[in-house]
Design a protein around this nucleic acid. Structure first.
Lengths: 256, 256
DNA sequence: AACATTTGTTACCCCTAAAGTAACAATAGA
DNA sequence: TCTATTGTTACTTTAGGGGTAACAAATGTT
């Protein structure tokens, strides 16, 4: 019977700060509306010897009410109230933490010119940051439509305020996207698809140069995705030169 | 040097889901802007042998970026981004959890007529719920202005739509509150201030009867606060009778 | 009144995550 | 070549949470 209960729900409650048993007991009590410790124990597989202490803790936290007696009866406080309280407390904690962190770092100068990013979220975050900063020109090379799709809205905006050059390896893959694409030379396509470092295939999925002074490259190596940000104008300039070559012999295909 | 750093900040970050060492490392890195593993270790007291693994985890989570080499350099991602991400993930989890809980309990009928509440938050929550439900008459006895202050706004609203009777033990204590008070008889005052059960002093701080059918009493016993909610109309009726007596001989003092 | 059942409590063990420690390999600089 | 630093590995310790067994207190039954 309890086996039907979503174990995901238990895990969610754990993420919200309850222990596994607390979560089970609270969920059980929400199901039963009103119950004795034993009934909760039977429904939830929380050991009977543990259930009393756990219910006490939940009552202290305000997640349930009780009616003393033998047996004592319990009822759950409305989930809306409970989750609302947890949410409020967490948000307070988060804003306070942010304030404290900001006191430590008035601004974060991005001192060094080269950085690697490993998390998916971090990569997208940084791409967005770069897109926000573009003033005149943005050159993009891409071999996977995924990223362009993700940032379609931002790119559409940029299209109006600056030069936007998007180079792809195969026009076909990008047909569904509403941009003007240029295609690389065959030579470059072969090159980019066959980079092997230390026996592992390197897959350059995205490469952007913003205003000729900041670049980000996202590649896939051995199942792991990683991004490299470079802020050295010289390096970016060289990279830009190479990418300009890619387009030789000055040949432009439009896809629509 | 690091001793100046707010340990509260570390605890906050722990509440947001980091381990102690992760929190220390991230805070250290925010302070240093850009640093090697050793520098972070020296600033934060995180063992040097542990710092590498921890920084790896933080990078995976997207909270920092790195520049490989010997030594490898690290920099913190802007706290605004990091806290923002944590917050978003938490809120998603919270709303999902609430949905799942609501599926279990379409509505929570408050079946039983008597419940105890132990948490401060739970008590206030329930008082608010009762205040929301009052239609015609609300009788309040209070010996501590704290609660009336807390719910001043709600009570002011109720004053317009229903009969509101507030009885207090000493008019003086409540002088600053903008309500019309009635005072109890001396006899009742003595009685209420000297309730002893099992050797412990019982202190009735607040008592409310809503529409003669639901009551909540908040009392303090041995440093712990507790509330009892009763929904039996008969019991409430009896309680109301007693409280009516309290006002005998029909004598009403107005405080302004 | 004697017995059995249920309620509530206590004391223990186990496991795991995370913190701390010590010693070693790999690398870089002198 | 030698030394200092970087980075890694294996181990110990600790604390919190989970599980089990056994007992006292209360309740119910014959």
């Amino acid at each position: 019977m309890f086996s039907q209960i979503n174990p995901q729900l238990i895990r969610n409650l754990e993420k919200l700060g309850l222990t596994e048993n607390e979560a089970k007991a609270y969920v059980g009590l929400v199901c039963l509306r009103e119950a004795t410790a034993r009934e909760i124990h039977e429904l939830t597989t929380v050991p009977r010897a543990k259930i009393y202490e756990i219910l006490k803790v939940l009552a202290k936290k305000g997640y349930l009410e009780f009616r003393q007696g033998s047996p004592t009866y319990f009822r759950a406080v409305d989930p809306k109230q409970v989750i609302g309280k947890i949410k409020d407390e967490f948000l307070n904690c988060a804003t306070q933490t942010l304030d404290q962190l900001n006191e430590l770092s008035y601004e974060l100068p991005k001192t060094s010119p080269v950085w690697c990013i490993q998390s998916e979220w971090g990569i997208k975050n940084r791409i967005r940051e770069i897109l926000d900063g573009v003033r005149e020109e943005l050159i993009i090379f891409s071999s996977s439509p995924e990223f362009l799709q993700e940032f379609e809205a931002e790119l559409k905006k940029l299209e109006k305020t600056c030069r936007l050059i998007i180079i792809v390896d195969e026009l076909g893959k990008f047909r569904s996207l509403p941009f003007e694409f240029r295609e690389t030379t065959e030579e470059f396509k072969d090159f980019i698809n066959n980079i092997v470092i230390d026996g592992a295939q390197y897959n350059e999925e995205l490469f952007m140069i913003a205003d000729g002074k900041e670049s980000i490259g996202v590649h896939n190596a051995g199942n792991k995705r990683e991004a490299v940000v470079i802020r050295l104008p010289i390096v970016c300039y060289l990279q830009k030169m190479i990418y300009d070559r890619v387009l030789e012999p000055g040949f432009i295909k439009k896809d629509r």
